[in-house]
């Protein structure tokens, strides 16, 4: 009896409850959706507040004027003034800091020499990294995990310490000069530390793993029978390398160059510790502007332009990665 009534009740609910059913469904799946929302919202809000909003603030301050106060810029926004305060702030904005950057050639030179140093060091890293990656890919397979570990390990050890290690080697009374003089190759010590050469060495050394890893992963996938076919058909080993290996490893070459170029442009530690007073790099200029000159609006304007410069290579890199993924899939 009771079973029957249960069934009819259920049936009644199903038939008359037509408008109700989406509602019950929603209620049923609410815990799951709620969990999904929470899962999305927590990292989303974190990144919004601590990554995106700070950029908007940088842009805002780059449009403000410098002031001798704390914080050292005007106009600031006072919540108590409400809308009028907001409009006062907006009307105080101008592009003065940016015209200042255009007029002073220190900034132009810094941007250009950062780009130049980054391009040259990417190419140097490619020249040094390619033979390493190539030899790793051709090493006996039981050796490869160890070699890979040896390439990755420096990436984990402190960047600052690895750059610091070069000071003792490159300085005037350093180990390199001592060794060269001892061997009788040079008579007077070379000046390497505090020059652009030291900066190149530092960047290539620090970012070499970023070059080797993508090169290795594209060279490792290569099919050896292609090279065998080329040699069978009369191709010299060098020509076979140039016509087959290099084009097939192009994705790795591009990825490696981007991965060295992008961080090298904004590098601060290497030009500061290894470079000299003549070494102009934009990361260092921004640091000096901020910490020594305490000119926050100009430092922000420097950051905004650096970001605009980097957007192009970053977007190109992302495109190239997506294309690779599509090919792989």
């Amino acid at each position: 009896m009771s079973e029957l009534s249960n069934i009819t009740e259920g049936a009644g609910l199903m038939t008359n409850g037509q408008p109700d059913s989406p509602k019950t469904q929603r209620r049923m799946s609410l815990p799951k959706n709620w969990g999904r929302c929470l899962l999305i919202l927590v990292p989303y809000i974190w990144l919004l507040v601590l990554f995106l909003v700070p950029f908007i603030i940088v842009v805002k301050i780059s449009l403000s004027d410098t002031a001798i106060a704390m914080p050292p810029y005007v106009p600031t926004f006072a919540w108590s003034e409400g809308w009028t305060g907001f409009w006062n702030m907006i009307s105080g904005w101008d592009l003065e800091n940016f015209t200042w950057l255009m007029e002073d050639d220190l900034y132009w030179k810094s941007y250009l020499s950062s780009l130049e140093i980054a391009v040259v060091s990417s190419l140097l890293a490619l020249l040094i990294g390619y033979p390493i990656a190539y030899s790793m890919a051709r090493a006996p397979s039981e050796w490869r995990p160890t070699l890979l570990m040896l390439i990755i390990l420096p990436f984990w050890t402190s960047f600052l310490i690895r750059v610091y290690a070069w000071i003792g080697i490159l300085k005037k009374e350093g180990l390199l000069n001592m060794a060269l003089m001892h061997l009788g190759i040079i008579d007077d010590p070379l000046t390497i530390l505090n020059t652009d050469i030291a900066v190149y060495i530092g960047i290539v050394y620090s970012y070499l793993p970023f070059m080797v890893l993508p090169l290795y992963s594209s060279l490792e996938k290569m099919d050896d029978s292609l090279l065998e076919a080329a040699t069978d058909l009369g191709c010299s080993p060098f020509k076979a390398f140039w016509l087959i290996t290099v084009p097939l490893s192009m994705p790795g070459i591009l990825a490696g160059c981007f991965l060295v170029f992008i961080p090298a442009v904004g590098e601060f530690v290497i030009p500061d510790l290894l470079g000299g007073s003549n070494t102009l790099m934009i990361g260092k200029t921004l640091w000096v502007e901020f910490f020594s000159n305490r000119d926050w609006p100009v430092a922000s304007a420097v950051a905004v332009i650096l970001l605009i410069l980097l957007v192009v290579p970053i977007v190109l890199f992302q495109r190239q990665q997506e294309k690779q993924q599509e090919k792989g899939a």
């Binding site: 999305i40 990292p43 989303y44 990144l47 919004l48 601590l50 990554f51 995106l52 909003v53 700070p54 950029f55 603030i57 940088v58 301050i61 914080p71 600031t76 992008i262 961080p263 442009v265 904004g266 590098e267 601060f268 990361g283 921004l286 640091w287 901020f290 926050w296 430092a299 922000s300 950051a303 650096l306 970001l307 980097l310 970053i314 890199f317 992302q318």
Partner: peptide, 27 residues
């Protein structure tokens, strides 16, 4: 936007990340 915000900090120059966070904390 979310995936952009996840990948962008990986390639962002440290000086910019540092400066922007400092300005956030100050404001």
């Amino acid at each position: 936007l979310f995936s952009g915000m996840v990948y962008a900090p990986l390639v962002m120059p440290e000086v910019i990340t540092g400066l922007s966070l400092l300005l956030l904390f100050v404001s």
